[in-house]
Design a protein around this nucleic acid. Structure first.
Length: 409
DNA sequence: AGCCCTCCACGTCAGGGAAG
DNA sequence: CTTCCCTGACGTGGAGGGCT
């Protein structure tokens, strides 16, 4: 379970010397695209120094040093508050911001690189909140309970890469009144898409994938096999692989070239020279492999196979037991291209493909479980925030009822 | 200590969906 | 259509706790 770090931060905002960085905005901001934006929009360009606008859609306003109790003066303009959490612990942050005559309380659960929910229950209204709290990751939800008890969603407009902007531009805009109720329902009812969340999560993390440079590592517990595979980004040479005492030779990749085959006699003397021209119709990503193996009857096969880049990564062939002084097996028998006639070879190829698939699936399953756990964590955080919000709304309703009763008396 | 239960992580299989 | 990736489902083994 996550350790919830509860912090109490009392914040009064000053105009210039506050320990928190502030993002200021005016009622007529000019956005990054140069167009005028409506009131209440906080654009990335308005952020003051110390503010980090991250590529993953996070605006992080760093408090200076480790100050947590900040005494500043009230400002009528925007204040942005950020609370970094070392170690990635979930923090519940309560912030009191003087706004006019009444303090506004903001509480949030913030988790690095995850969806966060920032909420500000209270009667101070959305206008203040919309200008005050900016710390969110992509996909975050910001709620503000207005005095009427309604919950106002704050629309997050993120100019992502590919839409013509630089990818760092993030604007926070208040939604229009006609959208509010609909969006409120959507935000509250929306079950975050598992896949979407995971995509967003993965976009903020270095992706570990099996690229073209595959490093094959066999687990020590699986028979102690020790496989070394050549880096396929380089030209493949003939390498020797020892697996469980059996020697394997990696194939020689011949890209659209001629192959010279020298067959030797039993005593190893050079009897003749055969030249095979193998045309490689594939792209540069493909290669022609000449593989040779010794069948159960001692007959040896030479099998040219055109492989894709993926296949080249892990390709290996089994050598014949005895080779001549030329380095080529004795009694070479040519087989048609892409036709593996040796049952043993076929079985090995099938086994190799299966092992490769299982390895991939193993990794995928691990990744899937990891993402699922993160997703569940995210849901738990959201539940916690919504419960707090619900509690705050109930309290607000209670106080409003009391106020109403007092007025009527 | 031995047994049982639960939880957790893992590997594998199967099926669906996306991409080429 | 094929290939690859993702994910639910299932089985397995280890760890930890409770009970006898």
């Amino acid at each position: 379970m996550d350790t919830l770090v509860e912090e109490q931060i009392s914040v009064a905002v000053s105009s210039s010397q506050s320990a928190i960085d502030r993002a200021t905005t005016s009622s007529n901001q000019t956005g990054q695209n140069g167009t005028a934006q409506p009131t209440g929009i906080l654009s990335a360009s308005s952020l003051v120094s110390g503010t980090q606008v991250r590529g993953n859609g996070t605006i992080l306003l760093m408090p200076r040093a480790s100050e947590k109790n900040i005494a500043t003066t009230v400002s009528s303009t925007t204040q942005a508050i950020a609370v970094p959490q070392p170690g990635g612990a979930v923090s519940i942050v309560h912030v009191s911001i003087p706004s006019g005559t009444q303090p506004m309380h903001v509480q949030s659960v913030i988790q690095p690189n995850q969806q966060s929910v920032i909420q500000a229950p209270g009667g101070t209204g959305l206008q203040s909140l919309g200008k005050n709290v900016i710390l969110l990751n992509k996909g975050s939800v910001i709620h503000s309970a207005e005095g009427d008890g309604g919950v106002h969603p704050v629309q997050l407009i993120t100019t992502a890469k590919g839409d013509g902007c630089d990818g760092d531009g993030i604007t926070l805009a208040l939604s229009t009144a006609e959208d509010e109720s609909r969006k409120r329902r959507e935000i509250l009812a929306r079950r975050p898409s598992y896949r979407k969340i995971l995509n967003e999560l993965s976009s903020t993390e270095p992706v570990v994938s099996l690229g073209t440079n595959v490093e094959v590592k066999e687990e020590s517990g699986t028979g102690g096999d020790n496989i070394h595979e050549s880096d396929t980004s380089t030209a493949l040479a003939s390498n020797t692989i020892t697996v469980a005492g059996t020697q394997y030779h990696t194939a020689q990749v011949v890209p659209a070239s001629a192959i010279q085959l020298a067959t030797g006699s039993q005593d190893g003397t050079l009897q003749g020279l055969q030249t095979l021209t193998m045309t490689n119709a594939g792209t540069a990503a493909t290669g022609t492999i000449v593989q040779y193996a010794q069948g159960q009857d001692g007959q040896q096969f030479l099998v040219p196979v055109t492989l894709s880049a993926a296949d080249l990564q892990a390709y290996q062939i089994r050598t014949a037991g005895v080779t001549t002084s030329t380095g080529l097996p004795q009694g070479v028998v040519m087989t048609p291209a892409s036709t593996i006639q040796n049952p043993q070879q076929l079985a090995e190829e099938t086994s190799r493909r299966r092992e490769h698939r299982l390895l991939k699936n193993r990794e995928a399953a691990k990744e899937c479980r990891r993402k699922k756990k993160e997703y569940i964590k995210c849901l738990e955080n959201r539940v916690a925030v919504l419960e707090n919000q619900n509690k705050a709304l109930i309290e607000e309703l209670k106080s409003l009822k009391e106020l109403y009763c007092q007025k009527n008396e």
